[in-house]
Protein backbone atom coordinates (compact mmCIF):
# COMPACT_ATOMS: atom_id res chain seq x y z
CA UNK A 1 0.00 0.00 0.00
CA UNK A 2 1.26 3.46 -0.93
CA UNK A 3 -1.23 5.24 1.30
CA UNK A 4 -3.24 4.16 4.32
CA UNK A 5 -6.69 5.15 5.44
CA UNK A 6 -5.08 7.00 8.38
CA UNK A 7 -2.96 9.09 6.01
CA UNK A 8 -6.06 9.93 3.97
CA UNK A 9 -7.68 11.24 7.18
CA UNK A 10 -4.61 13.39 7.80
CA UNK A 11 -4.43 14.73 4.22
CA UNK A 12 -8.17 15.54 4.23
CA UNK A 13 -7.62 17.55 7.40
CA UNK A 14 -4.70 19.41 5.82
CA UNK A 15 -6.82 20.11 2.72
CA UNK A 16 -9.73 21.31 4.91
CA UNK A 17 -12.11 18.74 3.45
CA UNK A 18 -14.70 17.16 5.74
CA UNK A 19 -14.88 13.96 3.71
CA UNK A 20 -17.56 11.38 4.41
CA UNK A 21 -16.56 7.85 5.38
CA UNK A 22 -17.60 6.64 1.92
CA UNK A 23 -15.44 9.29 0.23
CA UNK A 24 -12.44 8.39 2.36
CA UNK A 25 -12.87 4.74 1.44
CA UNK A 26 -12.97 5.51 -2.29
CA UNK A 27 -10.10 8.00 -2.21
CA UNK A 28 -7.84 5.61 -0.29
CA UNK A 29 -8.07 3.04 -3.09
CA UNK A 30 -7.87 5.56 -5.92
CA UNK A 31 -4.98 7.52 -4.42
CA UNK A 32 -3.17 4.26 -3.81
CA UNK A 33 -3.32 3.28 -7.49
CA UNK A 34 -2.46 6.82 -8.67
CA UNK A 35 0.55 7.00 -6.33
CA UNK A 36 1.65 3.54 -7.47
CA UNK A 37 1.49 4.81 -11.06
CA UNK A 38 3.47 8.02 -10.42
CA UNK A 39 6.16 5.92 -8.76
CA UNK A 40 7.44 5.24 -12.27
CA UNK A 41 9.24 8.60 -12.02
CA UNK A 42 11.73 6.82 -9.76
CA UNK A 43 12.92 4.86 -12.80
CA UNK A 44 14.65 8.09 -13.84
CA UNK A 45 17.93 9.29 -12.38
CA UNK A 46 17.41 13.00 -11.67
CA UNK A 47 20.64 13.50 -9.74
CA UNK A 48 21.91 16.98 -10.61
CA UNK A 49 18.80 17.93 -12.64
CA UNK A 50 17.41 21.35 -11.72
CA UNK A 51 13.69 21.50 -10.99
CA UNK A 52 11.43 23.53 -13.32
CA UNK A 53 8.74 25.61 -11.68
CA UNK A 54 8.08 27.84 -14.66
CA UNK A 55 8.38 26.97 -18.36
CA UNK A 56 9.34 30.39 -19.73
CA UNK A 57 12.54 32.05 -18.53
CA UNK A 58 11.53 35.06 -16.43
CA UNK A 59 13.05 37.71 -14.29
CA UNK A 60 11.26 39.81 -11.73
CA UNK A 61 8.42 41.76 -13.28
CA UNK A 62 8.69 45.26 -11.89
CA UNK A 63 6.35 48.16 -12.58
CA UNK A 64 6.05 51.74 -11.46
CA UNK A 65 4.44 52.11 -8.05
CA UNK A 66 1.44 54.09 -9.21
CA UNK A 67 -1.91 54.23 -7.49
CA UNK A 68 -4.82 52.95 -9.58
CA UNK A 69 -8.48 52.69 -8.69
CA UNK A 70 -9.69 49.43 -7.15
CA UNK A 71 -13.04 47.69 -7.44
CA UNK A 72 -14.31 49.30 -4.22
CA UNK A 73 -15.84 47.94 -1.03
CA UNK A 74 -19.33 47.25 -2.38
CA UNK A 75 -18.02 45.28 -5.34
CA UNK A 76 -15.59 43.39 -3.12
CA UNK A 77 -18.46 42.41 -0.81
CA UNK A 78 -20.90 41.66 -3.63
CA UNK A 79 -20.39 37.89 -3.39
CA UNK A 80 -19.93 37.64 0.38
CA UNK A 81 -21.92 34.73 1.84
CA UNK A 82 -22.46 36.92 4.92
CA UNK A 83 -21.53 40.52 5.63
CA UNK A 84 -21.91 43.18 8.23
CA UNK A 85 -21.43 46.81 7.15
CA UNK A 86 -18.19 46.79 5.20
CA UNK A 87 -16.92 43.50 6.64
CA UNK A 88 -17.14 39.81 5.84
CA UNK A 89 -18.92 38.07 8.70
CA UNK A 90 -17.72 34.59 9.79
CA UNK A 91 -18.68 32.18 12.57
CA UNK A 92 -17.05 32.63 15.97
CA UNK A 93 -13.27 32.18 15.68
CA UNK A 94 -12.17 32.08 19.33
CA UNK A 95 -14.09 29.79 21.64
Amino acid sequence: MKITRKEVDHVARLARLELTEAEKEIYTGQMDSILAYVDKLNELDTEGVLPTSHAVPMENAFREDEAVSSIGTDNALLNAPDRSDSFFRVPQVIE
Binding site: N79, A80, Q92, E95
Partner: peptide, 16 residues
Protein backbone atom coordinates in the same frame (compact mmCIF):
# COMPACT_ATOMS: atom_id res chain seq x y z
CA UNK B 1 -15.53 33.60 3.64
CA UNK B 2 -15.36 36.14 0.80
CA UNK B 3 -17.28 34.53 -2.06
CA UNK B 4 -18.74 31.22 -3.09
CA UNK B 5 -20.71 28.56 -1.28
CA UNK B 6 -20.83 28.49 2.52
CA UNK B 7 -22.35 25.84 4.78
CA UNK B 8 -24.28 28.17 7.07
CA UNK B 9 -24.93 25.57 9.79
CA UNK B 10 -21.25 25.19 10.66
CA UNK B 11 -20.43 25.76 14.34
CA UNK B 12 -16.99 27.34 14.15
CA UNK B 13 -14.59 28.68 11.55
CA UNK B 14 -12.72 25.41 10.89
CA UNK B 15 -16.00 23.54 10.66
CA UNK B 16 -17.22 26.12 8.14
Amino acid sequence: VRFGYRNSDAKGLLDM
